[in-house]
Design a protein around this nucleic acid. Structure first.
Lengths: 192, 192
DNA sequence: CCTACCGATCGGTAGG
DNA sequence: CCTACCGATCGGTAGG
């Protein structure tokens, strides 16, 4: 029983790597089987089908982001600090799940209509939560920006791209990356 | 003769839309043929093969970015202004090529080894050119940042994500988007 | 630009 | 978890 579970987790882990490296559509069940070390048909003893793998990866990450959001919403503090904490939490999710983040960010569109709609709704909710934070900052007189949609999407894209260059074995810890990015996004490049 | 050329251009345009919408690997030549309005086999009268379509899209955009870079390099000005001009040029390339930008950013990894290496080299050269600008700004005492790699990659990701939300029929012109993003990246969210 | 194909590979199932 | 398959679809070619 525990062997079945761990085998399933192992398959999902290898699928995550392959989906990231080759893309979901270009990864065949035979590619996956070979990487796992079994026949393609045997994969189906552990998972329902190919899309179940994608779905599991995308929603696991979405849940991680939503958990961070929920925890943040329990706290009350000035917007700049709140945003910094949110950035830290976001960076932590990504640096802890580099391959899955890449899949989460780029392969979700291959979900079929029903999970796709649910997935998009979760992303939207997360986006709105960040928009609320920076709107709050504007009301507090701490932030300035013309268009909060552009501000948040640029912020998010800066955060999301981390999976592309972050090296866990490198010199920067997740906290340092978060610190660095917070500073950049809050204060910009210009020296004061 | 001119009909052959324009047909080819038309096929590439439709391929660009499909590659963006479904991804390169998930777009079949039969999908493309149907969208163009001919049989799959007939596509091959106009293009060599599927990868030639991808290659043409990716390198056309890469060339557009490199052209912008070359033009910028002829000019001498303080780094903050230089960066603002570079951002404007970058935003112009993307907003003028929304579908192709998405393909350029996400589908290039499906190129075969040789063009892939060339493509990566072009991107690297462009990245280095931006790094030089912000390094120059640091030397001028105008910019501050801890890690120029992170600064540039965050900057680039903010710029590159534009294709995802920019609506040509919307209220913002490419110049306004560039202005807005320049301000955000140079000065941050924080009100001075 | 079409008809008629090709060999290869796809996701997935049956039955053990 | 394997062998043996299935029908469908893939990129691409031959020949007109």
């Amino acid at each position: 029983m525990s062997e079945v579970v761990s085998r399933k987790v192992q398959i999902e882990g290898i699928a995550t790597e392959l989906f990231r490296k080759k893309g979901y559509a270009a990864t065949s069940m035979r590619d996956l089987a070979q990487a796992v070390g079994m026949e393609a048909a045997s994969i189906y003893s552990h998972i329902k089908n190919k899309e179940a793998l994608l779905s599991s990866i995308c929603f696991r990450l979405a849940d991680a982001f939503m958990d961070a959001k929920k925890e943040m919403e329990l706290q009350t503090m000035p917007a700049p600090l709140l945003l910094q904490k949110a950035i830290e939490a976001h960076v932590r999710v990504i640096t802890n799940n580099l391959d899955a983040s890449a899949v989460f960010l780029h392969e979700w569109r291959h979900l079929s209509p029903e999970p796709l709609a649910e997935f998009i709704a979760l992303r939207k909710a997360y986006e709105n939560y960040l928009i609320r934070i920076i709107q709050q900052g504007k009301e507090e007189g701490k932030f300035q920006f013309e268009d909060e949609k552009i501000a948040v999407l640029s912020l998010l894209s800066g955060l999301n791209w981390i999976y592309d260059w972050y090296k866990p074995e490198g010199k920067l810890s997740p906290e340092q990356v978060a610190q660095n990015l917070s500073n950049l996004l809050l204060n910009g490049l210009t020296k004061k």
